[in-house]
Amino acid sequence: MKKYIFTLLLPLTLFANLSVAVSYPYIGALTKVIGGDKVDTVVLAKGNWDPHFVVPKPSLITKIRDADALIMNGGQLEIGWLPPLIDRGANPKIAINAKTFLDLSQHVELLQKPLSVDRSGGDVHPDGNPHFHLDPNNILVLAGVIKEFLISIDSSNSAVYEKNYTEFSGMWNEKLGLWKVKMAQKRGVKIVQYHDVMAYFNHAYGLTSIATIEPLPGIPPSSKHTIELIELIKKENPCCILHDVYHSTKTAEFISEKSGIKVISMPHDIGALESIEDLVSLFDYLTSAIK
C-alpha cells in the first residue's frame, strides 16, 4: 500500500515547481527569466511605492509562509519591513543563512559606502547605496547570481537555468550596447534628485548628481534647504530633476517654478509607471528620459 502512495506522490514532487519569494519586482522578473517554467515567483513589494517603506502586512506573511526560497535586494533596503515578516513566517527555508536564502547585495560592489555613520547625517545605509539594480550592467551580474542560486537548490533543472541565462545575457548584452550609444552624449550632464536612487545609473552613464531635494537621506524637504537648492541650481545649471514616482513632487515643482528646471519622473522598478512592464522597458525608458 505504502508503495502505491509513494509512486502516486512521486510524479507530484517531480513536477512541483520551486516557489521563490522575492522582495522587489525587478528580482521577480530576473527570477522568472532564469527560472522559466520551473519556478513560481511571489513578489512582496509593489513597484510604484517607496522600496524603503514597504508595509509588513500580515498578508505578506502568507506569501512567504510556504516559499522554498527567498531572494532579497539587501544593503539594508529591506531593513524596515522584511525582518518582522521573516520572524513571523515560521519558515526555516527563508531564514538568513539558510542555503535557500539569497542576499543579492553580497554579490555586487556597493557605491557610496560611508566611512562612518551617525544618524545626525540622516537615515544612511551603512553598507552603501542599495539601489544597485539601476546600473544595467549589474542586472547581468545579478542574473548570473540568481542562476547559480537556482542551480544550487534545484540541480536537476540546471540545464534549463543555464539555457535561460545564456539567452537572457545574449539579449541583454545587445541592449547594453544600444543604451550605451543612446547615453554617450549625456556624459557629464548634471542632475538633481529627490533621494539618490539613481546613483548606479548615474555611475554607469557618467551623469553627475549635484544635490538632492531631501536635505539628508530619509528626511523630508525643509524650506531652508529648498531655498539653498534653488540658488545652487541657478549657479550650476543642471539639466533636470530626476524624480522618483513615490515622493510628492510638490517641492520639485516649486523649485521648477523658481528656477525653470525640468522635472522628469524616473521609474525605479517594474510597475513604477504603468508603461514599465519588464526590465527592458525600464531601461528603455530611463535611457530616453533625459532629452
Binding site: V55, P56, P58, I79, G80, L82, D87
Partner: peptide, 10 residues
C-alpha cells in the same frame, strides 16, 4: 530611540 532597533511588525 537610539541604536539598532528592529522594525516593528504590523
Amino acid at each position: 530611540t537610539i541604536g539598532a532597533h528592529g522594525a516593528h511588525s504590523f
